[in-house]
Structures are given as C-alpha cells and as structure tokens.
C-alpha cells in the first residue's frame, strides 16, 4: 500500500503521534484510564499500521525477531523481578512496600515498574504475533 501516496504520507505523520499517545497512556495509569496492557496494545498498533503500509518486512528496520524475543523476556523478567525483590525484602510477592522507606513511594515505584514490564511484553508479543500472521500468504 506504499504506492498509495495519501496513505503513505498520513501514516508517516500519524505513527509518531500514536507512539507518543501510547507512552502517555503507559505513564498516566494513576491519573486516567490506562496502564501497561492498553499502552502496549496501542504501541503495537502504531507499528502494525506502519507494517500495513510499508510491508511487514519494514518492521525489521526497528525490531529484529531477536530484539522482540528479548523484549518479551525482559518485560516478564521486570514483572517477576519486582515480585521477587519484595520477597527478598521480607514482604509478600509483589508487595510494593519493600521498594522504599515510605510505603507510598514504594508502591508508586513498584507499580510503575510492573506496568512498564507489562507494557514492554504486551507490545513485543503483539508485534511478534502480527509478524507471524502477516508473514503468511494465502496464495
């Protein structure tokens, strides 16, 4: 669909907007609707639009298959790591109080890290699934 000039130009304009919007959703989970999962999905949607217009192989320019695998694992590791960090700190699994002297600050940091992990994993998995599906041809 790259030969469609209108679609190509508008995609170039709107993809950065979608990415910034997804990161806004990621980091404003405490103020509005949002959080890691939604942000990850919107982030991946930006890349899916890019791949729809410029071809699925264009994603390789940004994320190789190996990078996507590492991102998936990294997000999960962040999530689990936060949980075990609280275990090591003598609290229950995913008990955020262990992250700082002040329980409230600890909760903020803990939730932030967990949401970040969720966001990274969801985005990477969504893009991987899209590449896997789009790479297959029907004819």
């Amino acid at each position: 669909m790259k030969d469609n000039a209108v679609l190509r130009v508008v995609t170039k304009i709107i993809v950065p907007v979608i990415l910034v919007f997804s990161l806004y959703v990621q980091f404003h989970g405490d103020y509005g609707p949002g959080g890691g999962f939604q942000a990850g999905v919107i982030f991946a949607a930006g890349f899916i639009l890019y791949a729809l217009v410029f071809g699925v192989e264009a994603i390789e320019r940004v994320f190789s298959a190996a990078t996507l695998r590492i991102m998936t694992a990294l997000g999960l590791l962040l999530f689990a790591g936060v949980g075990f960090w609280s275990l090591i700190g003598g609290e229950r699994y995913l008990d955020y109080d262990a992250f700082a002297q002040e329980p409230l600050v600890g909760q903020h940091v803990g939730i932030f890290l967990v949401e970040l992990g969720v966001g990274i994993t969801v985005a990477a998995v969504m893009i991987t699934v899209f590449v896997a599906f789009a790479g297959r041809t029907s004819d």
Binding site: M1, N4, V6, L7, V10, I13, I14, V17
Partner: peptide
C-alpha cells in the same frame, strides 16, 4: 484534527 486528517484518508483508501 485527528478525525479530519484520518477520515478522508480512510475514505480515499476505501474508494481506491
């Protein structure tokens, strides 16, 4: 602004 940018684009892609 988004609607006025994206809707004609979708409309044109659909017509094409």
């Amino acid at each position: 602004v988004f609607l006025l940018l994206l809707n004609p684009t979708a409309c044109h892609a659909l017509a094409r």
